[in-house]
């Protein structure tokens, strides 16, 4: 049984009102310590107002090899974009 500390993914909220963003990862024995480490590793220059940590093993991710079938279907749906519609300038911003 390995005694290596688990890996944690770190998310920082840079400013009030913004989403937390992934900034990197680190090792820590538990969540509480992970947050402390994240503070020391990722916010030494006051980069954040809030930290989330999630065990890396708990993150489910889409597989890079499935990128095509996952995302290509939205390519030909140009009508989901506002610019698809010709609206004359006279009627104002819409």
């Amino acid at each position: 049984m390995s005694s290596e500390w688990p890996l944690w993914e770190v998310f920082i909220r840079g400013q009030h009102g913004l989403n937390h963003r992934h900034v990197g990862s680190l090792h820590a024995p538990d969540a509480e310590v992970a947050i402390k480490h994240a503070r020391d590793v990722y916010t030494r220059r006051n980069e954040g107002v809030s930290i989330w940590v999630v065990k890396s093993g708990d993150i489910a991710a889409s597989s890079p090899s499935e990128k095509g079938p996952m995302f290509e279907p939205s390519n030909d749906k140009v009508y989901r974009h506002p610019t698809f519609y010709d609206i004359p300038d006279e009627i104002g911003h819409m």
């Binding site: 009030h16 989403n19 009508y79 506002p82 609206i87």
Partner: peptide, 23 residues
């Protein structure tokens, strides 16, 4: 915060709705 961020996402998508209606 969470309401504000949901609104930002929604507003981004909403313009298409009004324009397709006007079209």
């Amino acid at each position: 915060g969470p309401y504000s961020r949901a609104m930002i996402r929604i507003c981004k998508e909403e313009s298409f709705h009004q324009r397709q209606g006007y079209a």
